Amino acid sequence: RQGFVPAAYVKKLDSGTGKELVLALYDYQEKSPREVTMKKGDILTLLNSTNKDWWKVEVN
């Protein structure tokens, strides 16, 4: 499932696989259909980080 999360809630990881991955630093509950819920410690695939406030991710 793809959607947006606050950029301040995730940290980029060095995956070494060519995929950009991020680590969820905090729990986040989606507040609109365009967002996704994540739990602290989740590893997500980063799809787009051009917006400084909201990053598009895919929940694996």
Rank of each mutant, 00 (worst) to 15 (best):
R1G: 07
R1P: 06
R1W: 07
R1L: 09
R1H: 08
Q2R: 15
Q2K: 10
Q2E: 06
G3C: 04
G3H: 02
G3W: 04
G3N: 01
G3L: 05
G3M: 06
F4D: 04
F4P: 00
F4Q: 03
V5N: 01
V5K: 01
V5L: 03
V5E: 01
V5G: 01
V5M: 00
P6S: 02
P6M: 04
P6I: 03
A7V: 06
A7K: 06
A7N: 02
A7E: 03
A8W: 09
A8D: 09
A8G: 10
A8R: 15
Y9P: 00
Y9N: 05
Y9A: 11
V10F: 05
V10Q: 01
V10K: 01
K11F: 09
K11Q: 13
K11R: 14
K12P: 08
K12C: 08
K12Q: 08
K12D: 04
K12V: 09
K12L: 11
L13H: 06
L13P: 02
L13D: 03
L13N: 03
L13C: 11
L13K: 04
D14A: 12
S15M: 13
S15G: 12
S15L: 14
S15N: 13
S15E: 09
S15T: 15
G16M: 13
G16N: 15
G16V: 13
G16Y: 12
T17G: 15
T17S: 13
T17V: 14
T17Q: 15
G18S: 12
K19M: 11
K19D: 09
K19T: 12
K19A: 11
E20L: 13
E20W: 12
E20H: 14
L21G: 03
L21F: 12
L21Q: 12
L21H: 08
L21K: 09
L21I: 09
V22S: 03
V22T: 02
V22F: 07
V22Q: 01
L23S: 05
L23A: 06
L23F: 08
L23T: 07
L23M: 14
A24P: 00
A24M: 03
L25G: 02
L25H: 02
L25N: 02
Y26F: 15
Y26C: 13
D27K: 02
D27R: 03
D27S: 08
Y28H: 04
Q29V: 15
Q29A: 14
Q29S: 11
E30R: 13
E30F: 06
E30C: 11
E30D: 05
K31V: 08
K31Y: 05
K31E: 07
S32Q: 08
S32T: 10
S32G: 12
S32Y: 06
P33H: 11
P33C: 10
P33V: 10
R34L: 14
R34D: 12
R34W: 15
R34Y: 13
E35G: 11
E35T: 07
V36A: 05
V36H: 04
V36R: 02
V36E: 01
V36Y: 05
T37Q: 05
T37K: 05
T37M: 05
T37V: 03
T37A: 07
M38A: 02
M38S: 00
K39I: 07
K39P: 00
K39L: 08
K39E: 06
K40W: 04
K40Y: 04
K40H: 05
K40S: 07
K40T: 07
G41R: 02
G41Q: 02
G41Y: 05
G41N: 06
D42W: 11
D42H: 06
D42L: 03
D42I: 04
D42P: 00
I43W: 04
I43E: 03
I43K: 05
I43H: 04
I43Y: 06
I43D: 00
I43Q: 04
I43M: 07
L44W: 03
L44Q: 00
L44T: 01
L44P: 00
L44I: 06
T45G: 08
T45F: 13
T45Q: 11
L46G: 00
L46H: 01
L47E: 02
L47D: 01
L47R: 03
L47H: 04
L47P: 00
N48V: 08
N48G: 06
S49W: 09
S49T: 10
T50W: 08
T50R: 10
T50M: 11
T50Q: 11
T50A: 12
T50H: 10
N51K: 06
N51M: 09
N51C: 09
N51W: 07
N51H: 13
K52I: 10
D53S: 11
D53T: 14
D53V: 15
D53L: 15
W54G: 01
W54K: 02
W54E: 04
W55D: 00
W55F: 07
W55A: 03
W55Q: 01
W55I: 05
W55C: 02
K56A: 08
V57L: 03
V57Y: 01
V57I: 07
V57A: 01
V57N: 01
E58T: 07
E58L: 08
V59L: 12
V59T: 15
V59D: 06
V59K: 13
V59R: 11
N60E: 13
N60Q: 14
N60M: 15
N60P: 15
N60D: 12
N60A: 12
